[in-house]
Amino acid sequence: MLPATHRLVDGASFRDVTRRGRRASSHTVVTHLLVVPDAEVSVVAVKVGFVVSKAVGGSVVRGRVKRRLRHVVRTELPHLPPGSSLVVRALPASAEASSARLRRDLVSCLARYRSPA
């Protein structure tokens, strides 16, 4: 479970991040990262939200995928810019992927944000 300070909870925030943020994708996930300029950072906590649609599978499968993604993101929070927001969208292939594969794909997406645009 992510602490409440790191959760992206309202629909407007999800929309803002997916529309204005940078996008990176892999075989199992699509990520959107919105970095707020330093002058606008009032809260230093990184906010994270997850989108796991019914295309991924039934409720049990979606819950399992979300838990595994949450665990990976928790370890990557210190590497994200302060005040940024991240949306992780699971693709249908994530249901069959191992935890190691999800970790690899998510870390590779996040690594692309560190390189120049």
Results as ranks from 00 to 15, higher is better:
S99D: 12
V46C: 05
V9L: 13
A97Y: 09
V41E: 07
A100S: 02
G11P: 15
A55C: 04
V43H: 12
V65S: 02
K66T: 14
R20E: 13
A39N: 12
V36R: 08
T18P: 14
V35R: 01
H6R: 01
L110P: 15
V72T: 08
V36W: 02
S99W: 04
L33K: 04
G11F: 12
C109F: 09
P37D: 03
G11L: 13
V35W: 00
G21K: 15
V51C: 01
T75V: 04
R103T: 08
L69C: 07
G57Q: 04
T18I: 12
R67P: 14
S59G: 15
V41A: 04
T31K: 09
L91D: 09
A90I: 09
V56I: 02
C109D: 10
R89S: 07
E76C: 14
H79E: 15
A95M: 03
P37E: 00
D10V: 15
K54E: 01
S13V: 10
E40D: 14
E40A: 13
R64D: 11
R62E: 09
A24M: 03
S53L: 04
L77A: 06
R101P: 06
A117L: 15
R68E: 08
V46R: 04
T31W: 05
A12K: 15
D10S: 13
H6S: 02
S98P: 11
V61H: 10
D105G: 00
S85T: 05
R103D: 01
E76R: 12
P37A: 00
D105Q: 00
T75P: 11
A95N: 03
V43L: 08
H6L: 01
R67W: 10
L102G: 00
L91R: 14
L2P: 12
A45N: 13
F50N: 06
M1Q: 05
R62M: 08
V61L: 03
